[in-house]
């Protein structure tokens, strides 16, 4: 990779001055364990047949097998996560492939607006492309330095740390590009279409 570009004169906001309290969104409380919540039973997924598809409004859909997926450029990232059931966990450490990297493999149709994450077990969730690009969303396969366990969504799950964690769909099998923000599973069941913890977008109408 080319040497990193640095913007002349840019220091950015002070990073150390930000206290812990400032990192907890309204109505949330801090946890140190990692609660498990799912809409259904934990599916068993065989890595030999595992596939991740990128389909929908793209010129040529792409599919990755498990070895192909592991060969994609991956990133380590450490992020705070917030669940709509009000827990927040700080500094969770993941490894995965950014949605940006996946999207580099396709040409989006001009009317592409959102993504539907489709999962083993039938769960779906929706994301605007604007919430999925620019290093905001990943398909993660390691948590805390170890392969992602099945109850936390392994082999691979979406991780979208800036939204409530139901958007970080477990057991991901496809990302489908769509032309509008179609509500997914929770979003059709009373939860907010976007789910920004800092705006407390918990339920539709919030």
């Amino acid at each position: 990779m080319a040497e990193r570009f640095v913007t002349r004169g840019f220091g950015g906001r002070p990073r150390s001055a930000v206290g812990l309290a400032a990192r907890i969104p309204p109505g949330q409380h801090l946890v140190t364990d990692f609660p498990v919540l799912s809409a259904g039973p934990t599916p068993r997924i065989d890595l030999a047949t595992w596939e991740l598809a990128l389909s929908g409004l793209v010129r040529a859909p792409v599919k990755w097998s498990w070895p192909e997926f592991l060969a994609l450029p991956a990133e380590e990232f450490t992020k705070d996560i917030s669940c709509v059931t009000t827990w927040t966990k700080l500094d969770t450490r993941w490894r995965g492939v950014s949605v940006d990297t996946l999207l580099e493999h396709v040409e989006l149709a001009p009317n592409a607006l959102g993504l539907v994450a489709e999962c083993h077990g039938g769960y779906t969730t929706n994301l605007l492309l604007s919430d999925a690009v620019n290093g905001q969303a990943f398909v993660a396969y390691e948590y805390d330095g170890k392969p992602l366990p099945p109850d936390h969504g392994g082999p691979a799950r979406l991780v979208v740390p800036h939204l409530y964690f139901w958007k970080s769909a477990k057991w991901l099998r496809a990302l489908r590009v769509v032309d509008r923000d179609r509500p997914g599973f929770w979003e059709s069941n009373g939860y907010h279409i976007r789910g920004d913890p800092w705006k407390e977008e918990r339920y539709s109408g919030d």
């Binding site: 570009f5 640095v6 913007t7 620019n134 290093g135």
Partner: peptide
Amino acid sequence: RLTAPDGYRAQ
């Protein structure tokens, strides 16, 4: 996007 010398970015 802006990048600080320590790698911090704002976009």
